[in-house]
Design a protein around this nucleic acid. Sequence first.
RNA 1: GGGUAGGUUGAGCAGGUGGUGAGCUCCGCUGACUGUAGAUCAGCCGUCUUCGACUGUGGGGGUUCGAUUCCCUCCCUGCCCA
Length: 386
Amino acid sequence: MAGAASFEVLTPPPVDGSTRARRGRLTLTHGAVETPQFMPVGTNATVKALDPDDIKATGASIILANTYHLYLRPGHERIARLGGLHEFMSWDRPILTDSGGFQVVSLGDLRVVDEDGATFRSHLDGSLHRFTPEHAIGVQEALGSDVAVAFDQPVTPSSPRAVVAEATSRTHRWAERSLAAHSRADQALFGIVQGGLEPDLRADSTRFIASLPFDGICIGGLAGDETPEQREAALEVAVPLLEADPRPRYLMGLGSPADLLEAVHRGVDLFDSVLPARVARNGQVWVPGGRLNLRNQRFLDDPSPVQEDCPCILCTRFSRAYVAHLFRAKELLAYRLATCHNLTFTLDFMARIRFAIEAGTFPAVVSELRLRAGRMSASEVAEKSA
RNA sequence: GGGUAGGUUGAGCAGGUGGUGAGCUCCGCUGACUGUAGAUCAGCCGUCUUCGACUGUGGGGGUUCGAUUCCCUCCCUGCCCA
């Protein structure tokens, strides 16, 4: 193992099997991350609309940046010359870089995958760029993130079994190459499990990735077009195989409070997603029990805060009416305020989860947390807990 | 007063020189968003009994089988000249 990360389970799951939720601490070069934890996404070395003080105020202890985007612009070598990613973006806490693997699926027609790597046509100017596992690791070492991630080939969860099988086995070969290419001693390296929604492929992939000396295990290829039930089933295949594994489990790409809760319940430690920030920029905010669309007419005359007990700048200083006005006027402050709120809500939700795990009350309060997250209706929660 | 260009669904426009104008962009309404090609996208946006029907091109009148189009008249607006 690279040795740049240590993970300690502070509160293991209860022996009665009522939950796999666990409380841990991941220590990285730039600081400790209390788990379960959510990582806001800052693809272009910025969490859109926020400055570093804003990000800290949300409670974030680690953020995610993107290898592919920063390679294209402004260039990883330039960032290295300028002192590395932390210095460049003035963020002194941990950073995890995604390898660019996600762009293999998200860029769709702009890329071609072969055994050696992926060729992208830049979404910025159409130029051609080649990503291999070795290159993705080299770029991440230049960026100097706390955690680098192996280059993988995710596929849409609903893909045919043959497609999933091929991408998964290729991801395994790329995992070994990523490990072999990695040399930076102050940077951890996580490997990525694939396997789609096929239980046997998911299990095989989990065993294979776990057999390699990574510092953490990413569960990839989800947060796509699968249903929550399918996703949870995939987790119930993968996580038990990692039960005795000493490393953190990171479910890539999840997002909504309800999804985070269900995944923690099934043993996941780390998350990232653009969802809270994107939803915020598009005018909607999370509140206990659901979400509000601030562009709705009814908020124009609403003097109340978005959420009574929220410590964020939006809720403590402004009314729903004000931010509703800002969204209509397309004022830049709207995006900042709403993003601050949704990230604060998400990170506060994770803090509540951690508190409950520590207190040993997590199984007892899952229903209450589901209600807060807004996935189930009040009656559904009552029914489930009855 | 004379000349001239115009008056199209909340706003701004397109189109239409005799054969059924509901087309665009804003605005407005609602929804979606999950390892960010996203401060984006989608649906709706005259009325109704909504797989359809009706109404609508400044007002009134005329010609015609049929008028947004041609004729008369009036009203309103911009610009130019007095």
